[in-house]
Amino acid sequence: MSPQFVIVAIAILATMGLAVSRAVVGPTVFDRILAANTFGTKTVLLIAVVGYLTGRPDFLDLALVYALINFIGVIAALKFIKFGHFADHRSESNR
């Protein structure tokens, strides 16, 4: 087991914990989405690092998928809190 990966994994986990605490405290919904986004990108890193830690770099595919889903999730959450639904809006004037 390589110690540098363990240290990095612990650092990432600590940051994820901090992000979760921010998501719980809030106070606004945007803080929570921001924290969720940070949590998501840290998960991507964690998957990559754990892949190397366990000697299975196949995990990188999963990290790519997670990065993708994270981005789409944030956009979807934003659209939802903005309009309350995903349908086309009459006045989509959000340049």
């Binding site: 993708l68 889903i69 981005f71 789409i72 956009i75 979807a76 995903f86 349908a87 086309d88």
Partner: peptide, 15 residues
């Protein structure tokens, strides 16, 4: 994942 591409398209360009 393939459907995710369409979901992103739908979110950004409208239903």
């Amino acid at each position: 994942v393939f459907a995710a591409a369409f979901v992103l398209y739908g979110l950004v360009f409208g239903l």
